[in-house]
Write a protein that binds this DNA or RNA. Structure first.
Length: 613
DNA sequence: CTAGGGTTAG
């Protein structure tokens, strides 16, 4: 029924006086004879798209006592709660007047709450349902878990889980998949895995949830390994588009280019390469793995480039040091008639920050809200603080944070702290630490940066103080970790790592490299090292940073001339930066290091950052 | 006895 028809029906409906059959004349008039009056009302409800019509239907239901008709009620509830009209308060008031709601009606409300702005209400309704002695079926449980997921309520989820076991729904694989997702979201990776193991039948969605669980709980390498495990003889589960999407994210995180290429091939072989979400993920993966050519190739081949595709490409260019090109792409995007959104501007501002385009960045930031209606978020401010901080305009950056209309988070203070380190601004660093403490978000990394600052300034007294404080508070340092991929396998290194099977060769190679670099004039930079030791010892202690181990392994295990790609979870230190720079010349190797904030491309003894770092 | 459940882009 078209909108006009609905309107016509409704107007005659409200004026109709003949209710003796509980059905207004207008309902029987225009509708085929095979339909009962009740069905026609259902059709009317289903096709209703305006709130004013809704009120009229509601009035009609009340007037004709159809409130007692479960089907009518249910449809009405679904309409109010789930259709584009969705109004959860309206439907909950309607629901409240139903004397004895059926399980179906409860489920409709539970579903509505699970996708509403107040998902926690779903849990109260679930308790209400149980209080009335009704049994929650698999669907009811599924909706409640969805609510729990929305508010990350592990406790609520555990209660529902117990009830599921009691009610004998423990072999409903779709329900278990939802539960797995809940445990995954709440960081209970082991619980999710346990559920997966106990599942009687595992379809591709269950595998995907497991992979997503690993991906979001710092078990990225496990996530990657599941791609082959699920396809193996024992499981015979064919990865789908979602699996590929998750795999590409994992590859991005691990810098696993070869594996990413394998997934790309898989995507092509299965004809998924027309899917824009997969193409966009491919662009992001290739960019983040430092392979801009391939990212651009995918981008170029896309028929319908949407805002996500453009943003991915812009960020890709920016993060790889092609700030000017990123800004050009932004202009091209607008010429193509694609409207930028918040994430596009994150990429653009990032581009400015990476090439030191301070004034341009400020202009973009200004235009963003004025010309495009994009409200600045914490990431935009973060880029700006980075931009100002790196340019040495630390006080301006500090003022910017103080003037923000959103609460500064720990990341933004940390960004400023990074600027303080570059420019050795002790005083500001101290007050930033103050803000971090205030946020109760102080992390080891912050103190490490502060110690770097004191160490550079040779302020051993203060340095000792900080170290003592850290020890007292039992603050754990996040271990620095570098990964390098070889033949599709990610190798992981931590500081002074001795766990690698080829550790002897690696350390031997590292010593050899150090010797060669020394001849070429490389001197270990000890300023950023934490320990107030003798210079000799410090030079030694520096040699085993995880990125150096990864690089040494790369030199050892790949043919001469092969580019070495390393990903590091923290910021690269000054010394490792110099080390990679020298190595790129002496060993004639392109070295690409992706650290927490950016890419460093080393070639012929130089870095793409040109000292702007 | 209607219809209603899981993963997922930058």
């Amino acid at each position: 029924m078209r909108r006009a028809a609905v309107s016509r029906h409704l107007s005659s409906l409200s004026s109709s006086q003949s209710h003796h059959l509980n059905v207004p004349v207008c309902f029987t008039a225009n509708i085929s004879h095979t339909q009962t009056p009740k069905q026609s009302l259902l059709d009317l409800i289903k096709s209703c798209a305006r709130r004013s019509h809704l009120l009229q239907i509601h009035a009609h239901i009340v007037r004709t006592s159809l409130v007692l008709e479960p089907i009518i009620c249910l449809q009405f509830l679904s309409l109010v709660a789930l259709s584009p009209l969705k109004s959860i308060s309206y439907s909950s008031r309607f629901f409240d007047q139903i004397a004895k709601p059926t399980t179906f009606q409860y489920n409709t409300m539970l579903r509505a709450y699970s996708i509403s702005d107040s998902p926690e209400e779903g849990f109260s309704m679930y308790r209400d349902l149980l209080r009335r002695g009704l049994r929650a079926d698999a669907l009811a449980s599924s909706f409640v878990i969805k609510s729990c997921i929305r508010v990350s309520s592990l406790l609520g989820g555990i209660q529902v889980h117990a009830r599921i076991l009691r009610d004998g729904h423990e072999s409903d694989s779709r329900l278990l998949t939802t539960l797995m997702d809940l445990y995954s979201i709440c960081g209970k990776c082991d619980e999710a895995c346990k559920l997966f193991d106990e599942m009687p039948k595992r379809d591709v969605v269950a595998w995907n949830v497991l992979i997503s669980c690993c991906l979001h709980n710092n078990r990225t390498r496990d996530a990657v390994s599941l791609f082959d495990i699920m396809r193996s003889e024992t499981h015979r589960c064919e990865p789908d588009e979602v699996t590929c999407l998750l795999m590409l994210q994992a590859c991005s995180n691990l810098n696993a280019l070869e594996f990413g290429e394998r997934v790309h091939k898989y995507i092509e072989e299965h004809g998924y390469d027309g899917a824009s979400n997969l193409c966009n993920s491919l662009i992001a993966m290739y960019s983040r793995c430092g392979c801009l050519d391939k990212a651009y190739e995918v981008f170029k081949g896309m028929k319908d480039k949407n805002v996500v595709s453009w943003s991915a490409m812009i960020s890709g260019l920016a993060v790889n040091g092609y700030g000017r090109e990123a800004i050009e792409a932004f202009g091209e995007m607008q010429r193509m008639g694609v409207l930028p959104d918040d994430q596009t501007f994150t990429g653009v501002l990032c581009a400015c920050s990476h090439c030191g385009l301070v004034d341009e960045g400020m202009v973009f930031f200004d235009r963003m809200s004025k010309d495009f209606g994009v409200v600045p978020n914490i990431h935009h401010y973060g880029c700006l603080v980075d931009l100002l901080g790196r340019a040495g305009r630390l006080d301006q950056a500090y003022q910017l944070i103080l003037s923000m209309d959103i609460k500064p988070d720990s990341t933004i203070w940390r960004t400023l702290l990074g600027g303080c380190r570059i420019h050795g601004h002790d005083a500001l660093a101290e007050s930033v630490i103050g803000h971090l403490i205030e946020l109760k978000a102080q992390e080891a990394g912050d103190y490490v940066l502060l110690m770097n600052i004191y160490s550079s300034a040779g302020n051993w007294e203060k340095l000792t103080e900080v170290r003592k404080f850290m020890k007292e508070k039992a603050i754990q340092t996040t271990p620095g970790c570098s990964t390098i991929e070889l033949k599709g396998v990610a190798h992981e290194f931590v500081v002074d790592d001795v766990s690698h099977p080829r550790k002897d060769e690696i350390y031997k190679m590292l010593d050899e490299i150090n010797g060669q670099l020394k001849i070429a004039g490389y001197v270990a930079d000890v300023s950023s090292e934490l320990h107030n030791l003798g210079t000799e010892e410090k030079g030694h202690a520096l040699s085993y940073h995880s990125e150096k181990l990864a690089i040494a392994f790369g030199v050892l295990a790949t043919p001469p001339g092969t580019p070495i790609r390393v990903a590091k979870n923290l910021r690269i230190c000054v010394d490792c930066h110099n080390f990679a720079m020298a190595l790129s010349g002496v060993y004639n190797r392109e070295v690409i290091i992706r650290d927490r904030t950016r890419f460093h491309h080393f070639r012929e003894g130089r870095c793409s950052c040109n000292g702007y770092w």
